[in-house]
């Protein structure tokens, strides 16, 4: 039973990293990825924060849905309000605690908290896991997978940026943001080999 649960969790995490890569197949956290990739340090902190907050938020939301069965039937926008509020409360509690407790990495963590926690990637995990009907262990695994997907994506884009910086042959009109975006596009194309489609199925309508 435990082994099956673990396998299901691993599958959910790997899905979030490869098969339904939330960054490249969903476009989530695109801004944060590129901003994190521009810096040489801090990417792992970002990824850890994303993992922790995604998993925690999604888990709390899932538990709330289990404890209050009525929540399953409410309209989607109330789910949004609920999940958004949970994330906000969690964020405020953690930040308040960090600002009150003095320790070495306090300033460093507070600096990254806003961008790392309040972004589309973290918010999407509880919404997606609700839509996919994940149970609690899989929900947590998906949150962890989101952080791993972010870490992988930012490392790949960071190494690409280094490559592009060394490349003096890039034409002037493509230097900087254009080349980075096209590089990211080709990375996203590579990951489409896993998914074959967009994460949100958007585009079927005109």
């Amino acid at each position: 039973m435990i082994r099956e649960q673990l396998m299901a969790m691993l599958t959910a995490a790997l899905y979030a990293v490869f098969l339904y890569n939330l960054v490249f197949s969903g476009g989530l956290g695109a801004t944060e990825i590129i901003r994190a990739a521009k810096k040489n340090g801090g990417m792992l902190t970002f990824s850890l924060l994303i993992s922790v907050f995604s998993a925690l938020t999604a888990a709390i939301c899932r538990l709330l849905t289990v404890w209050i069965p009525k929540l399953e039937t409410v309209e989607f926008q109330w789910h949004v309000l609920l999940y958004g509020s949970v994330l906000l409360v969690l964020y405020l509690i953690v930040c308040t605690t960090l600002s009150l407790v003095r320790f070495k990495a306090q300033a460093y963590l507070l600096k990254y908290m806003g961008m790392a926690v309040l972004n589309t990637l973290v918010m999407a995990v509880p919404l997606l896991s609700f839509q996919l009907g994940y149970n609690l262990p899989r929900t947590i695994a998906m949150g962890v997978g989101a952080g791993l997907a972010f870490a992988g994506a930012s490392l790949l884009i960071n190494s690409g940026m280094h490559l592009l910086q060394q490349n003096k042959a890039i034409p002037v009109m493509f230097t900087g943001v254009p080349a980075t975006l096209i590089y990211t596009a080709l990375l996203a194309l590579a990951f489409t080999g896993f998914t074959g489609s967009s994460l949100f199925g958007v585009g079927g309508e005109a």
Binding site: F24, S25, G26, G27, A30, V172, M173, F174, T175, G176, V177, P178, A179, T180, L181, I182, T184, A185, L186, A188, L189, T192, S197, S198, L199, V202, G203, G204
Partner: peptide, 23 residues
């Protein structure tokens, strides 16, 4: 062209527009 709907298409279109703006 299905690929244009996907995030890859989005990144590509934005990248090309960014280059166009720079030019």
């Amino acid at each position: 062209v299905r690929g244009i709907w996907m995030p890859f298409g989005g990144f590509l279109v934005v990248g090309v527009l960014a280059a166009g703006l720079k030019l």
